[in-house]
Design a protein around this nucleic acid. Sequence first.
DNA 1: GTTTGCCTTGACGCCGACGGCAAGGTCTAG
DNA 2: CTAGACCTTGCCGTCGGCGTCAAGGCAAAC
Lengths: 129, 129
Amino acid sequence: MLIGELAERAGTSTRALRYYETHGLVRPARSANGYRVYDEAELHVVREIRALLAVGFGLDDIRPFVACLRAGNTSGHVCPDSVAVLRRKLAEVDAGIDRLHTVRRELRDQLAHAIAERERTCLRLRNTP
Amino acid sequence: MLIGELAERAGTSTRALRYYETHGLVRPARSANGYRVYDEAELHVVREIRALLAVGFGLDDIRPFVACLRAGNTSGHVCPDSVAVLRRKLAEVDAGIDRLHTVRRELRDQLAHAIAERERTCLRLRNTP
DNA sequence: GTTTGCCTTGACGCCGACGGCAAGGTCTAG
DNA sequence: CTAGACCTTGCCGTCGGCGTCAAGGCAAAC
């Protein structure tokens, strides 16, 4: 399988695949003419990468998952390093949710206050001769 | 008040203040020697900018608030444009919270599944003669 | 006079995951 | 033979809010 086919089957671009390669996540063989050649296993690897990226992982976070897959596991999640990353990310997401809730409260208050202020101003204008 | 003093009083850097200026958010006068000169009102403006940035606004989102302050209002939130931005941001934050909750569920499931899988493997290893 | 400490503009660096383009090699079909 | 559809490496651009020099001007203290 050449890079174009892999890109299409994995739902990404050739540019992205080369990028993953420069970051050590994908390791294609090379044919005689220098073309990158991928086997079916790489398809799973790339899909794993894409899925984790979509969830908000960075490439560095993803590396353990790829290593886990390469080690022969059906899932890239079952290795200790992967689990550690999952835990960390879960904590980060929790922190993010908390932060957004705080921001949300703040925005709600500011909005309510602003609207109340506007109505006060309107009343004043109406009551002014 | 020169730029250094304003930066310190507003809790930011001179670089940031010049940056805000290039983006039309702050408009200092100039003294004879070319130095930027700010009045007290600009301190409130810069504090408003900082507060909104901290909440996750972009400079473009902040512009209406600054205009509102300049229009003579005590708060930068009370003008229609500001309120519109507040509403939009609130919606964005809600969307962000939903997204993070989805991600959180996904991570929890993956983590639980991975740990269960590991324990199954351990049991198999123990039961294998 | 000179040191110190402000100030000025200008321009590059950063982070991350690529997009896009250039210049060229390779393979296949007509 | 040639067109066109692949592939290669390499390098700049993107987005945002600045940080960090660099090179120089202005002002007050010693």
